[in-house]
């Protein structure tokens, strides 16, 4: 058969589409790890948090986070009993080096560790113009650094302020819930290094995970429930003043 110019023009697009599927194969995954069997979240037991900053240091060591940027950080709240609507919050260097003595020991003082809430309906993934950030099938919000343009839409969209632009790569970065650890059966760096057990990784799709019993028997909240993000970082005994 002679291939005329007309035939070639008709064949090329069909061939390119077919070639794409030939090359793609099936997506790789870690051995013995099924995406569909997990739905990750985290439990933060606030009465146990001592504000030592171990989680912040561990996260920076594990994930090579640049100085002055944070995938997780610890805030200290001071709530005066005369003005509970306006708490004073400080977080010197993200709480990485601990906290200086409180200026005002009257009223309520407590620590609140923060990180990406790994929302099931995440505002940050919805605004990405190129599909570089997404909720994985096991419920972790991830960024594809090879696809990210660094346009900063997602940094503005996150209601919890959990994203930043990495100055070295100029791409968006955030907590991956230590995806490289949890897919190998380890816990996250912050949970591994929390000395009091205030942070606990939770697999909501595993019926044997202690999170289910905890959620049934404790007063647990998420941050900014009014945003309807379906956040999966659960705070035990969260004070109403926390934003």
């Amino acid at each position: 058969m002679n291939i005329t110019r007309r035939h070639l023009l008709l064949l090329l697009p069909a061939a390119s589409v077919a070639w794409k599927y030939v090359l793609a194969g099936t997506p790789e995954a870690a051995p013995n790890y099924k995406l569909s069997e997990h739905w990750w979240g985290m439990l933060i037991d606030l009465p146990k948090c001592i504000g030592c900053g171990n989680c912040v240091r561990a996260c920076q060591a594990e994930n090579d986070v640049p100085d002055g940027y944070f995938r997780t950080w610890v805030e200290r709240y001071h709530v005066s009993d005369y003005d509970i609507e306006n708490p004073q919050v400080d977080s010197p260097d993200g709480g990485k080096k601990g906290f200086p003595p409180a200026k005002d020991v009257k009223g309520k003082n407590f620590f609140v560790p923060k990180l990406c809430n790994h929302c099931a309906d995440s505002p940050c993934t919805q605004v990405c113009p190129v599909g570089a950030t997404f909720v994985s099938q096991d419920g972790v919000v991830l960024v594809d650094p090879k696809y990210c343009l660094g346009c900063r839409y997602c940094v503005q969209a996150c209601p919890y302020g959990c994203r930043f632009i990495n100055p070295r790569t100029n791409t968006a970065e955030k907590c991956t819930l230590c995806y490289h650890r949890i897919t190998k059966g380890l816990t996250t760096a912050c949970c591994e290094n929390c000395p009091t057990g205030a942070r606990q990784l939770a697999d909501l799709r595993n019926p044997a995970d202690p999170i289910h019993e905890f959620l049934k028997t404790h007063s647990v909240h998420v941050l900014k429930p009014s945003m309807a993000t379906r956040a999966k970082v659960y705070y035990n005994e969260l004070d109403g003043s926390v934003r």
Binding site: P27, E28, A29, A30, Y33, L35, A58, A61, E62, G131, A132, T133, F134, V135, S136, Q137, L142, D144, K146, Y147, T176, Y179, H180, R181, T183, K184, L186, A189, E192, N193
Partner: peptide, 19 residues
Amino acid sequence: LGHYRANAVAEIAARPIKF
């Protein structure tokens, strides 16, 4: 897997462990 590069998931999972 969705509107993203499916291989990115495996690439992120392959990062080295420090702890």
